[in-house]
Design a protein around this nucleic acid. Structure first.
Length: 596
RNA sequence: CGGGAUGUAGCGCAGUUUGGUAGCGCACUUCGUUCGGGACGAAGGGGGCGCAGGUUCGAAUCCUGCCAUCCCGACCA
């Protein structure tokens, strides 16, 4: 490809919409154009990058036994109603774009394809002899993100590889899951990325074990915790650790103390010389449940700890047996609008009486009381007295009438001791999630009644796994991990072109001839090569080559008369002056060794 | 959804306070000089100021409504 024929619109100024380096560089290099919030056009250079990634993904998936398909993006509502996800995905802050056809039938624009694939499997697979099977596709997905941002990182239309496996047993599922784990590592390494595999929450997709693959970068949206020995790493949503020991509370009789205007843990501590770890913090929340119930919660946790709401939602969902759509703090206005008398905010204890709910209009009239392990372990603690401006000191859990539900709800933090080895401490990093693998189990096969005939001739539900890679996100994450002040530094395996030949001065016929010859020979040798044949000053061409990030540059310039060209490595700026034969040999070596 | 900010040429911005019919840099076109790290000079082309109303002799500037985009937040009572 010749640069003169490529719509290469490089920008000197940074478009104001872009915040992070990778997004700015994609725009400045002319790789993408924003059409509207969270929706981008991939320009020719970008499309080449996406295709390179796609090819690597296809090879590894095929090697691991995957079968490529292409599934519909428009999906009928009934299928999602059957799996029980229609409501959650479309109502409220639901993430699925949806529409009606001319007959008034409802459809969703596919954010993911479990429903479709499960239906297909149930129709096409009759016998255990056909299992296991692993179907995948690479195509555009749609998600109406609450807040699209960072270009392709969180966009509403994006390219994803998703694979779904079907098995006759859990063991067989685990086998494929492990195979996918290996394939994923292979894919990311081949794409030139450094990734960390972390334990993850399975979220809205559901299921048991799950692992995320993170590109570490400061701009990442996820917080991950790793041990310095590398044996433990988890998304903070999932992470566990050993909490610090609480500060002992002195001996003495239980008592009620006056705490005027001491509403926060901080105020309480500074006024009375308490430590946060001696206090029980009670958080008042409302859970919105799938069937429309509104359940008030009293969550107790040690004052120096924080609640991990993913853990809380997961616990609630299994406890209630219903999907919990959302949890939110209860505020004073809501108490008024429920027609309730004032609550002693700032002095609420774990034993706040259910009578505070007795006249509630729409809420359930009994608190669900949940206690985090850190709180439950305290024998003697400080807590609100359920009366304005009063707290109790040196009380124990006998203040509760019923035995409480004790759950791990605590947010693990950096510097916490690790469970696998208390001498190790957790470290905090930011990560960009580019891959996620799940053991789904039978959730979807049961919901959609997808069965096969087993060895004994009876019907069994499929065991399922699902495996995603954000292809367009991966491309941007690669830039986030590989760039400098001048532009992108693509890993050669996913670069839009492997080599760029620059003719320094297009009016010098010996330079032109040398450059054109190099271009032709490199092409003949199967190298993806770009020729900058523009009538521009050399400096402009160098800047552009650096910006768009082509890994290897060859310059036919001032030494053209003597038949010499210059090779420059984008990543290191390392330079060599060679004859064009030597240069071709050298470039071939470089490309072949890194192409993978 | 809550809070904040911004919409003026493909990109970056000024002009809005104090209404008088739009400007700068980059990019683009032509000519000349220059030619290895985003050159210089000269001459050009392109927008009617997010949209819709209103006030006014006159609106990018004032008023009303809407829309869009970006940022922050969405458990610490």
């Amino acid at each position: 490809m010749r640069v003169s024929r490529l719509i290469m619109a490089t920008l000197r100024d940074v478009p104001s919409e872009a915040e992070i380096a990778s997004h700015q560089l994609l725009l400045r290099g002319g790789y993408i154009r924003r059409i509207t919030s969270g929706i981008y056009a991939y320009m020719p250079l970008m499309w080449r990058v996406l295709n390179k990634i796609t090819k690597i993904v296809q090879q590894e998936m095929n090697d691991a036994g995957g079968l490529q398909t292409l599934l519909p993006q428009l999906q009928p509502a009934e299928l999602w109603q059957k799996s029980g996800r229609w409501q959650g995905y479309t109502a409220g802050e639901g993430i699925m774009f949806n529409l009606k056809d001319r007959q008034g039938r409802s459809f969703g624009l596919g954010p993911t394809h479990e429903e479709i694939i499960t239906r297909i499997a149930s129709e096409m697979i009759q016998s255990y002899k056909q299992l296991p099977i692993n179907l995948y596709q690479i195509q555009t997905k749609f998600r109406d993100e609450i807040r699209p941002r960072f270009g392709l990182m969180r966009s509403r239309e994006f390219i994803m590889k998703d694979a779904y496996s079907f098995h006759s047993s859990e063991e067989d599922l685990k086998h494929t899951y492990n195979k996918m784990n290996k394939a994923y590592k292979q894919i990311f390494t081949r794409c030139g990325l450094e990734t960390v595999a972390v334990e993850a929450d399975s979220g809205a997709i559901g299921g048991a074990a799950s692992q995320e693959f993170m590109v570490t970068a400061d701009s990442g949206e996820d917080l991950i915790l790793t041990s310095s020995d590398g044996l433990y790493s988890a998304n903070q949503e999932k992470a566990v650790s050993i909490p610090p020991d609480p500060d002992p509370i002195g001996e003495g009789e239980p008592a009620v103390i006056n705490t005027p205007n001491q509403k926060s843990i901080e105020e309480l501590c500074s006024a009375n010389d308490f430590e946060p770890s001696q206090i029980i913090k009670v958080i008042v929340l409302l859970a919105l449940i799938g069937d429309g119930q509104e359940q008030p919660l009293l969550v107790s946790i040690r004052g120096d700890q924080e609640v991990n709401d993913v853990k809380l939602i997961n616990y609630l969902s299994t406890q209630i047996g219903q999907e919990v759509l959302k949890i939110k703090p209860i505020n004073i206005e809501e108490i008024d609008s429920q027609g309730l008398t004032k609550w002693p905010f700032g002095s609420i204890g774990p034993d706040l009486n259910d009578s505070f709910l007795s006249n509630a209009r729409t809420w359930n009239k009994k608190f669900l009381r949940i206690i985090d392990c850190t709180a439950a372990e305290l024998n003697s603690f400080i807590c609100g007295a359920n009366t304005k401006d009063k707290h109790r000191i040196r009380v124990g859990w006998d203040i509760l009438e019923e035995s409480p539900k004790i759950v791990d709800l605590r947010k693990a933090k950096s510097l916490d001791k690790c469970i696998h080895d208390p001498s190790q401490r957790l470290e905090e990093k930011r990560g960009i999630e580019i891959g996620h693998i799940f053991q789904l189990g039978c959730k979807y096969s049961k919901a959609l009644e997808a069965t096969f005939t087993n060895e004994k001739g009876s019907q069994d539900y499929f065991w399922m796994g699902c495996y995603g890679i954000g292809v367009s996100r991966l491309a941007q994450a690669a830039i986030e991990q590989n760039h400098d002040e001048f532009g992108i530094k693509w890993p050669i395996s996913i670069a839009p072109f492997e080599v760029i030949v620059i003719i320094a001065n297009i009016k010098d016929s010996s330079q032109v001839q040398l450059g054109e010859n190099l271009y032709v020979s490199l092409q003949a040798n199967g190298i993806d090569v770009l020729l900058d044949d523009r009538d521009e000053r050399a400096g402009v061409k160098f800047k552009d080559a650096d910006l768009i990030g082509i890994p290897l540059r060859v310059v036919a310039g001032r030494d053209a008369e003597s038949g010499k060209v210059e090779i420059v490595k984008r990543s290191t700026k390392e330079t060599q002056l060679l004859t064009s034969e030597e240069a071709i040999k050298k470039l071939l070596e470089e490309v072949l060794s890194d192409r993978s």
